[in-house]
């Protein structure tokens, strides 16, 4: 079992013929993802890496059963592409692209809510159900099957922590990047609920960072969870008022501080580690 995507997920790649789209399509295929079609307006009829390319998502859906779409399209055109996938009835849409205007993000998320679909991202590394399906950009070799669920805001920090887990032989059910922007489709709570219900997931790693309130909101749900949660929050040493790369990673008006998040998570029963490389040890200790 895994959450959201697995070995039976038929994947569409929007923007398959672009530089990033093509490179990551090859990588995703190498990981074993079942990519059944791609889109690229004006290039319908082409076949790339053995994958048929269509002019529109509707055209792809007329010829294939598609469960999920991953978008590799420049920021200015993502709103159109995401709405296109959602309107065609695709229920899981992964938006890797960063630097998308926040008003576009609100429009995408609002429409997804209306059609009861899941948007992962924007500004995410994507999602990996280890050993089954990868949608997004993480390096393949660090994701091995196992029983730990991972949910994160940040990409390379996730590779760091999942890389450490894998090096210690600790595999993952699913690794989900919710995205680094202020408005994203999935919250920590949404993903924690899925892991709580997934019989194969035995423990959950939450990788958060300063800024916003999502770790505090997650704490309210962690209180009710039966599975152990290990959390790392990046940005302990970040000064207030300085934006640390991600749109959300900024301490403003005393909100979103490291201390506040650690307190909320600890009180909810999560185990908070101080440094990224402490995660595997704590998992071994808890799951012994």
């Amino acid at each position: 079992m895994a959450i959201l995507i697995d070995e039976n997920t038929n994947v569409l790649v929007q923007g398959l013929t672009g530089k990033q789209g093509l490179f990551h399509t090859q990588q995703m295929l190498a990981y074993g993802s079942k990519i059944v079609a791609g889109t690229s307006p004006g290039k319908g009829g082409a076949v790339v890496e053995g994958i048929p390319v269509y002019d529109s998502v509707r055209a792809a859906c007329e010829n294939h059963q598609i469960h999920a779409s991953v978008i590799f399209i420049p920021a200015a055109f993502v709103k159109d592409a995401a709405l296109e996938a959602l309107e065609a009835g695709i229920k899981v849409v992964v938006v890797v692209t960063e630097h998308i205007p926040v008003h576009d993000e609100m429009a995408i998320v609002a429409y997804a809510r209306r059609v009861n679909a899941t948007v992962i991202g924007p500004n995410t590394f994507g999602i990996v159900s280890s050993g089954k399906c990868k949608m997004g950009i993480p390096p393949n070799q660090f994701f091995i099957p196992g029983s730990v669920g991972v949910v994160a805001r940040s990409g390379t920090l996730t590779y760091e922590i999942v890389g450490n887990l894998t090096a210690q032989g600790i595999g993952q059910t699913t690794v989900v990047g919710i995205g680094g922007d202020r408005v994203v489709g999935l919250s920590f709570v949404d993903v924690l609920k899925m892991f709580e219900q997934d019989p194969e997931t035995k423990a959950v790693v939450l990788i958060g960072e300063i800024g916003g309130k999502s770790e505090e909101e997650a704490s309210l749900y962690i209180k009710e969870m039966t599975k152990p949660v290990i959390a790392y929050i990046a940005g302990k040493s970040a000064p207030p008022g300085k934006r640390m790369g991600h749109a959300g990673a900024i301490i403003e008006r005393g909100m979103g501080t490291y201390e506040g998040k650690v307190k909320a998570l600890t009180e909810a029963g999560a185990r908070v580690v101080e440094l990224p490389f402490e995660v595997p040890e704590v998992i071994k200790e808890i799951c012994r």
Partner: peptide, 22 residues
Amino acid sequence: GAGITMGTLDTLAYYGGKPANF
């Protein structure tokens, strides 16, 4: 990456170092 950069700052601080930049 923003997250790993923050993680690096935190690790430096943990060992008593002071980052000059992000």
